[in-house]
Amino acid sequence: MSTSTPETRTATTTSPGAGQTVAKRKRKHRKFDPWGLVAWVVGLMFFFPVFWMVLTAFKQEVDAYTTTPKFFFKPTLEGFRAVFDQGVGTGLLNSLFATSVSTILVLALGVPAAFALSLRPVRKTQDALFFFMSTKMLPIVAAIIPLYVIVSNIGLLDNIWALIVLYTSMNLPIAVWMMRSFFLEVPGELLEAASLDGASLWRAVREVILPLVSPGIAATALICVIFAWNEFFFAVNLTAVQAQTMPVFLVGFIAGEGLYWAKLCAAATMAALPVVLAGWVAQNKLVRGLSFGAIK
């Protein structure tokens, strides 16, 4: 009777051919991919202006405005102090308030509309969808004069609520179209099963449908946040001091005399930071939402 140790059995099962196969696989994985290098180069090219903006925000003005770019310098917070001295808090709070409230209103109005146009379609659904998108076909510059007259007559010039209404109407068609595509990926049989179990329509939507499309809601909300946060045309024409937003505040650093690159980069860094943080917090749901229904 022969006995075999674990080392013997391992040596028996692991043949030289299997070792060669593993080595080939490792060499295959280590194979140089030129397209991967191109992707890295393109990504770094897109990221470099943002990196340079943040770097310049910590420079002094004499180091920021030089013919030869300076990569090594003594960091300073003078640019950020100057931004706070010029009242960045007002623009930052106005942008946060207008963006958050308008996004909440867009979701409150857009999610039921998208649900009705997908899982519970109404008559002439295509006409309703075309009406939503037709509101985006008119150039903003063509509508600014009547909008200015209306806002002036109702006493909402330099008022943050005028921007909230406009941002909501601006983002609502996009939100409806995005959310409708997410709702269309949900099987209608789920609602039928929930109704057979005795659940009401509102309960079925709240406990069955909305958890499934929550990544799509997060992606839609982030898109609306970006569009509302970066909007400039309405804000610069309908606000002055009390309701100015961050994009309008940034324009104040563009002066006819003197160059203030460090201060401008510090203000731009502060303006970009909330959106970057929002995208970082919602990155998992954002990736799931943007790829929702891509793989069957």
Results as ranks from 00 to 15, higher is better:
I223V: 12
L147I: 15
F32S: 01
P274F: 04
L286R: 03
M270I: 08
F292T: 03
I140L: 12
Q86I: 01
G198P: 00
R25L: 12
R123F: 15
A268T: 15
A142L: 07
R206F: 12
F233C: 01
E78T: 08
E185L: 02
S134W: 06
L166R: 05
T56M: 01
G89I: 13
I254E: 10
V213Q: 02
T8H: 13
N153K: 13
L191C: 12
W161I: 07
M270E: 06
Q242M: 07
A235M: 00
V38S: 15
T245N: 02
I144F: 06
V287K: 12
I223N: 09
L147F: 10
I217M: 08
S4P: 05
V22F: 14
T67P: 09
S15M: 06
V251P: 01
K124F: 13
T5N: 12
A240P: 01
T14Q: 11
A262D: 14
S118F: 00
A266G: 14
T90R: 15
L210D: 00
V106L: 00
F46I: 13
A240G: 02
A18D: 08
N230M: 07
V287L: 07
L92H: 04
I223W: 15
E257K: 12
A142N: 05
P121I: 00
N159C: 08
V248I: 12
N230Y: 01
D85P: 12
A278R: 00
T135H: 11
S214Y: 09
A23H: 13
V106T: 14
I154A: 00
W202Y: 11
A193S: 08
M246T: 01
L201Q: 14
A294H: 04
L105Y: 01
P274C: 06
G289E: 01
V22H: 03
Q126C: 00
F32R: 13
Y148L: 05
C265P: 05
N230P: 07
K31N: 05
R206M: 07
D63L: 03
V141D: 07
A240R: 15
